[in-house]
């Protein structure tokens, strides 16, 4: 399994790993998203044994990828 490959943020989106617009993507494969791709705010994330839920204050739940 690739555990270190970076996942690129799509054009115009905030990076879900650091929230930056300019970051080309620093989310690691085994990290859940931490920042909202729409506004770059920190997400409320609950990691459970079988998955995770991530939610932005303004943009709601992040669709599972």
């Amino acid at each position: 399994m690739d555990t270190t490959g970076d996942v690129a943020a799509p054009d115009g989106a905030h990076c879900t790993g650091c929230g930056s617009l300019s970051c080309i993507g620093c989310t690691r494969t085994l990290d859940p998203p931490r920042f909202c791709p729409q506004c770059g705010r920190r997400l409320t994330v609950a990691v459970t044994p079988g998955g995770f839920r991530a939610r932005c204050r303004d943009h709601g739940a992040l669709a599972p990828t």
């Binding site: 555990t3 990290d31 859940p32 994330v45 044994p49 995770f52």
Partner: peptide, 28 residues
């Protein structure tokens, strides 16, 4: 996962006898 990569099964024959399955506290 990050440290051992493909050597995870070798740890099981090097003394490990239990594991956490699924996700961790803040990482997957």
């Amino acid at each position: 996962e990050v440290t051992l990569r493909e050597l995870q099964s070798m740890g099981m024959t090097s003394g490990i006898n239990a594991l956490i399955v699924g996700n961790y506290l803040t990482t997957l």
